[in-house]
Nucleic acid binder design. Structure first.
Length: 167
DNA sequence: GCCAACGTTGGC
DNA sequence: GCCAACGTTGGC
């Protein structure tokens, strides 16, 4: 009955919103909003409570994966799309017919060291990651269980809950 | 700062 | 429906 846990990766520019900003939030939890790409939005909508999230710093020096979070609430309307003063304002979005969504995530771990893109590229097992594809821009992307486990190993963490254990 | 990659827009 | 123009992302 239980759905298998899924894994995701979200990007954020640390100058805009870093993992340390997430750490400073009440309950270390935030509503992940502002996504304005349909594929990324569809990934947000596919997220379920307890899914694992890799937190990536883009446009950073160095860019890389800096920690993990967990999905604590499923997709709901991104009200910033209704705010005329928001850069993500979209007049096609209404409360009644929402077009854009966000999810609630809670910080789990901040890695001791950034897993930089060059470091990740050294890993044969991670070659297929969307993140490492040339020109990859998708800001919310799926991660395979295998990649999740490898990345947590590289970060020196126990991959945690036995994600692949019998349901 | 450069620029490749890619999504979106809008004329036709 | 096509596709050129344009804007954005994000590594380097």
């Amino acid at each position: 009955m239980a759905r298998r846990r899924r894994y995701w990766l979200v990007k954020s520019e640390p100058a805009v919103y870093s993992i340390h900003d997430l750490a400073a939030e009440k309950g270390r939890t935030t509503f992940w909003d502002g996504v304005r790409n349909y594929q990324a939005r569809n990934n947000l909508k596919a997220m379920r409570r307890d899914d694992g999230v890799l937190f990536h710093h883009s446009n950073a020096r160095p860019p890389g994966i800096v920690g993990t979070a967990v999905v604590v609430g499923e997709a709901r309307e991104d009200a910033t799309a209704r705010d005329p003063h928001s850069p993500g304002h979209d007049p096609r979005h209404t409360r009644e017919a929402p077009r854009w969504f966000g999810v609630d995530i809670r910080l789990e771990h901040i890695f001791d060291e950034v897993l930089t893109l060059p470091r990740l590229r050294e890993e044969p097992g991670l070659r297929d990651m969307e993140l490492l594809r040339k020109g990859s821009r998708l800001s919310v992307q799926p991660v395979t269980p295998r990649a999740w486990r490898r990345i947590l190993e590289l970060a020196g963490l126990d991959p945690g809950r036995p994600a692949e254990a019998a349901d």
